[in-house]
Amino acid sequence: MITMKDIHKAFGQNRVLRGVNLVVPKGKSMVIIGGSGTGKSILLKCILGLVNPDSGVITVAGEDVTHTDRDVLLSRFGMLFQGGALFDSLPVWHNVAFRLLRGKAALPRAEARAVAIEKLRRVGLKPDVADLFPAELSGGMQKRVGLARAIAAEPEIIFFDEPTTGLDPIMSGVINDLIREIVVEMGATAMTITHDMTSVRAIADEVAMLHDGIIQWTGPIGDMDASPDPYLQQFIHGRAKGPIEAVR
């Protein structure tokens, strides 16, 4: 579904991606792990066209993303941002229905609102949340609204950027379960970035570890613990000592 071939990206002297090769199969949930500042978010942004890679080819369903109509490409995606990225000036329902209200296939306002309320219910929020503004919600509720927005247009591919960062363990568990349920229910292809190993185990079909600008290890979640890769073992067990420098 998504393939990345030899992706390079540098910011000045800082070479963040140094030849990333990765395949995300259709309908699978791929989780990308790796230390802070290793370029995981940049990788997602390259796929979405928010950041242009210096070299390499990214294809989605066989089409090179740089030669595809941007709007058509983006209409296939939903994304949950790390901080929610909800629009402060719009009420919750309007945030969720944002895409539904725009474009050639725009729904009437009442219909879009009904879909938004249904999606809010799907992520465990009551209809009375719909008319609140994002600033009136807790962090966990904002994440859920972000999730509702990501799935509102029923995309084929969903990206989750650190979905549990800043949440307590119970709320993290709720979000992890929701992500898993939704991905399975919709049959969507998912790509998640996280540091949270509980999330990895709850969400992933496949895992890829990004380190030093390349995919250091990739494989099914079931193979992760048994892998002899010292980088992967250090990361998943959170050891201070190992090949990954603790101070970067």
């Binding site: 983006l74 209409s75 941002f81 990225a85 909800l86 895409r99 725009r102």
Partner: peptide
């Protein structure tokens, strides 16, 4: 500026706007 640093502008792009 706040929209940019809180990724709201990136969110707009991903929502085809």
């Amino acid at each position: 500026g706040t929209m940019k640093v809180t990724e709201q502008i990136d969110a707009l792009v991903t929502l085809s706007t």
